[in-house]
Design a binder for these strands. Structure first.
Length: 711
DNA sequence: CCGCCTCGAGTTCT
DNA sequence: CTCGAGGCGG
């Protein structure tokens, strides 16, 4: 009796808890699903990750206690499946097609012309434009509002059943929204007319399609982990996403944090346009891409494309173009299929960020310092919207690293989206006629012998390996020419309207021999040259004479002494005050300056020892160049001890101007972010310094705050 | 001697 | 902007 009683009460207790648990479980599921929807679909975070995790934890624990309460659509079941032996096949109810490609306006026009002929004047009703996500296509099937199965494209007719893996993607709803919610959404978009048919469809089956992808952050995170573990890094997010979705063990897929957008409804619910499909998908609780939009004509399409080509880097996922679809579904159907692609849609690709081309030659350039730089002359190709015909190869080490030969086929990209850069040599495409590149033994410009790493190693055996080859002839025309380019450049004498072309002309005609000669130029000297008439000659002379008075730091910088750039020139001007003091400074004096070590001191000292340079300085004086020697006074100490780094561009002042203003107030400017940096001033379109500042926790300020500090 | 912090120099096309 | 290397502190 006693025992019976006990058992009874125990059962009673369990039952009670179970019913409570059931209620609690349902509430938790609803809540978790709601936050998931806000976060992954509507892009809104209203609860911290930690808080959401604790909800999930509670749910998980309850379900552990009552396994019989687990349902397949519970949020805990996103990683519920066991590893598979192989994927089952799923037949697509309607073939999954691919798109034909267009690369420019002409292609688009041709496409429009082609199908308008087919339509023979029927109304086409504009286009729907979507971002073309670089991922893989999927198909999802929902029965009675719950996710039932999903598959990859496969060959278009039959795909692989990757249901378990798709479940792990939080952007893929395990349940559609509740009907009352859907109705509200439809009303908001004035789509009530679909209500009836949609409700009926949902009680049965609805099939939709979309794209699975991995965002950049996740991709970078995984590659960091790979690197740390000494494993091979993945080539791109697309391949990694595709690989992840084809994992037999859903635990692996789950760890990859994939994302997804959907973009079309296969089931007929009376949708008239593609735009409506998107709105309905959104109303159902699917994640659709909010940037997609309707455009009336090809001009609008063109604008959409161009805008996103420019802004594609701001997205957290990769796109390789846009998809343009005839918006009217009846017209779209009528246009039919050509080959493997629908005639009513086209992928309008962005110009590629990398392209394949041939190395026609490798030539050598001589820079201001005499350093020889090998440059590849390329068969011109369009990369990122501009034509590239040359790319630097930096030095011999780089050539060896790439293994590049003349005649090779290469992949060219643009470093920092600007500077052409050889990424890869396609050695498999060689035909045997490729020629090895050799550094010339003699300077290609003056014919004097080149000093290479081997020679220098003998001269200074303590130094490590040096990569540069150098023409050490002080009279090498190339070096002298570059010296004058440098002299007139923005940060030196800043002489407007005199560029390499004019300097070449003047030197070739032997009218000038060094920078000092510029200041004694007469109008008559120029009139004999090609492309110079009265007016242009006058302007040029005027531009030169206008810059006759120059601050000491600019002057020192303009001399182009090895290892003396802007900063060191500024420092020298501040310390020595007068040109004469610097000229006569001893090695020890120079060496004692902060940031000047043995190498820099030696470079400065020996520059002023040379007769040629002494003459040059005298000639500047004779030509009437005046050095303003009293500019170093700091106006205030307001920013003393503060170090600034500047990135991006500003509305009200240039970067250099900003720099001078900081210095005037006693602050320091640095070119790279570190622990020592006090403020990073962030303009529009900032570069990597901004990222670094954020990572290091350095304080960033915007233009407004910066200007306030300057006041 | 090592590692961090800077500066210098080179770079393409519109 | 990026890479290489000089300077300097630990």
């Amino acid at each position: 009796m006693v025992n019976f009683h006990k058992e009874c009460s125990l059962r009673q207790e369990t039952l009670m808890i179970k019913s409570d648990a059931q209620k609690r479980i349902e509430k938790l599921r609803k809540l978790i699903n709601h936050y998931r929807y806000l976060y992954h679909v509507l892009d809104r975070q209203e609860i911290s990750d930690a808080a959401l995790d604790s909800l999930k934890n509670e749910l998980f624990n309850l379900e552990q206690q009552f396994p019989e309460l687990v349902t397949p659509d519970s949020p805990t079941q996103r990683v519920g499946g066991k590893p598979l032996k192989e994927f089952k096949k799923i037949k697509h109810p309607e073939q999954m097609l691919s798109f034909n490609d267009a690369f420019d306006v002409a292609d688009m026009k041709a496409w429009e012309d082609r199908f308008e002929k087919v339509l023979s004047g029927a109304k086409k009703d504009g286009y729907y434009c979507e971002l073309k996500i670089d991922g893989l296509a999927i198909e999802l099937s929902y029965k009675k509002g719950a996710f039932e199965s999903g598959s990859t494209r496969g060959d278009g007719r039959i795909g692989e059943d990757v249901t378990q893996n798709l479940k792990t993607i939080e952007a893929v709803p395990l349940n559609l929204l509740e009907w009352t919610e859907i109705e509200k959404n439809l009303k908001k978009d004035k789509l009530e007319r679909f209500s009836k048919k949609l409700e009926k469809t949902l009680s049965g089956q609805i099939i939709v399609r979309g794209e699975v992808f991995m965002d950049r952050k996740e991709f970078e995170k995984i590659n960091r982990q790979q690197k740390k573990a000494g494993l091979k890094e993945y080539a791109n997010p697309r391949n990694l996403a595709a690989g992840s979705i084809r994992q037999l063990d859903p635990k692996v897929t789950s760890a990859r944090n994939l994302d997804s957008f959907v973009y079309s409804i296969i089931t007929d619910i009376g949708q008239e346009t593609h735009e409506e499909e998107h709105k309905i998908l959104k109303a159902l609780g699917f994640k659709v891409n909010s940037h997609n939009t309707y455009e009336r004509n090809l001009e609008g399409v063109e604008q959409f494309r161009n805008r996103w080509e420019k802004e594609r880097d701001k997205l957290n996922y990769e796109i390789d173009g846009i998809v343009v679809i005839v918006n009217n579904n009846h017209v779209f159907k009528r246009l039919g299929i050509v080959g493997k692609a629908p005639r009513g849609a086209i992928a309008y690709k962005f110009s590629p960020k990398e392209a394949e081309t041939a190395v026609e030659d490798i030539v050598v350039q001589v820079g201001r310092t005499g350093v020889l730089t090998p440059v590849a002359n390329l068969n011109p190709v369009n990369i990122g919207g501009t034509t590239v015909s040359r790319a630097t190869l930096h030095n011999l080490d780089e050539i060896r690293r790439l293994g590049i030969k003349i005649g090779d086929t290469v992949i060219v990209g643009r470093a920092g989206d600007v500077i052409p850069d050889v990424r890869n040599v396609l050695k498999d495409l060689r035909n045997g006629k490729e020629k090895e590149f050799h550094m010339p033994k003699k300077c290609p410009v003056c014919g004097e012998p080149i000093e290479g790493p081997a020679q220098r190693a003998r001269l200074a055996p303590t130094k490590g390996r040096q990569v540069a080859f150098k023409c050490v002839n002080k009279n090498c025309p190339a070096v002298k020419r570059e010296a004058i380019y440098h002299f007139v450049s923005k940060k030196a004498f800043d002489i407007d309207g005199i560029g390499p072309k004019i300097i070449d002309q003047l030197m070739d005609a032997a009218i000038i021999h060094d920078a000092a000669d510029l200041f004694t130029l007469k109008k008559e000297d120029l009139l004999n040259l090609e492309r110079f008439a009265e007016k242009s000659a006058y302007n040029t002379i005027n531009a030169i004479q206008k810059k006759k008075n120059v601050h000491l730091d600019k002057f020192i910088y303009a001399l182009g002494i090895d290892h003396v750039g802007e900063e060191t020139a500024f420092l020298l001007a501040k310390k020595f005050k007068k040109m004469d003091n610097l000229k006569n400074a001893s090695l020890e004096e120079l060496r004692s300056l902060p940031d000047v070590g043995p190498i820099v001191a030696e470079s400065i000292y020996s520059w002023f020892q040379k007769k040629y340079n002494q003459n040059l300085i005298n000639n500047f004086g004779k030509a009437g160049v005046k050095i303003l020697e009293e500019k170093t006074s700091v106006k205030s100490e307001k920013l003393a001890g503060k170090t600034f780094v500047i990135t991006g561009s500003f509305e009200t002042l240039g970067r250099d101007e900003a720099k001078y203003r900081v210095r005037d107030l006693g602050g320091d400017i640095s070119s790279s972010v570190s622990q020592n940096t006090d403020y990073v001033v962030v303009g529009s379109e900032p570069g990597s310094k901004y990222d670094k500042a954020k990572k290091m926790g350095v304080k960033t300020i915007d233009e407004k705050e910066f200007l306030k500090m300057l006041k």
